[in-house]
C-alpha cells in the first residue's frame, strides 16, 4: 500500500499549490506515473479519491492519470532504451525498484555496453503535470 503514501504526497502538493494560487476549487489534476515505479493504478486512484474526499475544494475534481513510458540513456555510450528491453528483472527486483526507482542502477545495465551509468530520461515516478482550478467561479 505504498501507493497511499504517494497519493497523499500528491494531495498535499496540490493543496499547497492551490493555496499559493488562491484557487477556491480544483477542476482537473493531470498526473503522470512513471512506468519504472510500476504503481498500481487502481489503488493509487482509489487512494487519491479517498484522500480528496476530505477536502471540499476537490468536490468536482477530475483526475487524469497517464502512464509515462520509461526511457533510459546510457552516459557511457549514448544508447537509449526502454524498460521492456531490459532483461533479468524478476519479481523481487521489480518490487525493489517499485519502492525506490533509483535502484534501477543496482539491477539494470545498458543493453549495449553493460554500463550502470545511465540516466532515467523520463518515466521515473509520480509527477503532477498540471492543476486547473477556479478563483471564485472564474477559471484559471
Amino acid at each position: 500500500m505504498h501507493e497511499w503514501a504517494l497519493a497523499e504526497a500528491v494531495v498535499e502538493s496540490v493543496l499547497e499549490a492551490i493555496k499559493k494560487e488562491g484557487f477556491t476549487s480544483v477542476k482537473e489534476v493531470d498526473i503522470s506515473l512513471g512506468e519504472l515505479q510500476d504503481i498500481e493504478l487502481e489503488i493509487f486512484e482509489f487512494a487519491l479519491k479517498k484522500l480528496m474526499k476530505k477536502e471540499d475544494i476537490f468536490r468536482h475534481t477530475k483526475i487524469n492519470l497517464r502512464v509515462e513510458k520509461t526511457l533510459f540513456r546510457c552516459r557511457a555510450c549514448g544508447n537509449e532504451w526502454g524498460l521492456r528491453e531490459t532483461k533479468d528483472i524478476d519479481k523481487d527486483i521489480r518490487e525493489a525498484i517499485h519502492f525506490l526507482p533509483e535502484l534501477s542502477h543496482s539491477f539494470i545495465r545498458c543493453p549495449k555496453c553493460g554500463s550502470p551509468d545511465f540516466e532515467v530520461v523520463k518515466g521515473r515516478g509520480v509527477s503532477i503535470d498540471s492543476i486547473r482550478g477556479e478563483i471564485d467561479g472564474s477559471e484559471d
Binding site: L100, E102, L103, H105, S106, F107, P116, E119
Partner: peptide, 18 residues
Amino acid sequence: LFAKDEPTPLRGGDVSNA
C-alpha cells in the same frame, strides 16, 4: 532494506531523488 547486498552506483541527481 531494498537493495540487499547489491551496489548502488548513484550520481548526484539520483541521490537526491532516492
